[in-house]
């Protein structure tokens, strides 16, 4: 832990941690919103773009995140589009994880029994009320564990941004490593920080699940 005693390295890791938290937070939020939007859209039987969504989900889940990041980082400048490294990392990571979140949430929507829809119809609920009041709360209850696990995956995945020139936690560790040659010390410290962030998310999941257990009828 002696690298944390060095104020220069401490400041570096502090800044890098903020970057990791910002990237993770943004990607978690954006990919969950996108997944929710896609799920609601796919609930509509007349959705025209259904094959596009299916193809997107397959493509995004079949290709490595690093390849997606490279497309944005090396590919877009060829088209004359120059994005900030951070912007392209955010887009690439969100593109990849939104597909996973979509699949998890879709499984949640599929798990709501059909009788609930009949009940909603017989009560005269409109489509919006059916989706928002009946389907969504129950879908999230089923999908929550997978969505939380994916949030942990997103935090870990943010380390790949270091390979497209973003100064986040892993990039900071390689910088410090190159200066000190204390690989094990540096990397275990970084691992500990990642572990704490993951633990915080898992803690949030337990909190959410205990509240759900409370409000569950019967």
């Amino acid at each position: 832990m002696s690298i944390l005693a060095n104020p220069v390295y401490l400041a570096m890791i502090g800044r890098a941690l903020w970057m990791t938290l910002f990237i993770s937070g943004f990607v978690i939020l954006a990919s969950n919103l996108a997944a929710f939007g896609l799920c609601v859209y796919m609930q509509n039987p007349k959705a025209r773009l259904r094959p596009v969504v299916v193809a997107y989900s397959f493509f995004a889940r079949a290709s490595p995140v690093l390849a997606l990041l490279f497309v944005l980082y090396y590919g877009l400048p060829r088209l004359g589009i120059y994005l900030e490294p951070l912007t392209s990392a955010l887009i690439g990571l969100t593109f990849g994880s939104a597909a996973y979140n979509y699949e998890f949430l879709r499984a949640g929507f599929d798990a709501v029994p059909a009788s609930q829809l009949d009940a909603a119809k017989s009560l005269g609920l409109g489509r919006f009320a059916t989706v928002w009041k009946v389907l969504t709360p129950q879908a999230y209850r089923v999908a929550a564990p997978a969505l939380f696990s994916n949030a942990v995956q997103i935090v870990k995945g943010s380390s790949l941004a270091s390979l497209v020139a973003i100064d986040e936690l892993t990039a900071a560790s390689t910088t410090i490593l190159a200066e000190t040659y204390k690989a094990i010390e540096v990397l275990l410290t970084i691992s500990l920080i990642y572990g704490l962030v993951s633990a915080a998310i898992v803690g949030l999941q337990y909190f959410y699940e205990s509240r759900q257990a409370w409000s569950r009828p019967g």
């Binding site: 942990v152 870990k156 380390s159 790949l160 490593l177 990397l187 691992s191 990642y194 572990g195 633990a199």
Partner: peptide, 13 residues
Amino acid sequence: FFRSIPELVVLFL
């Protein structure tokens, strides 16, 4: 432990 730290960091380790 190995599920909560990034693969890239494990590899570097």
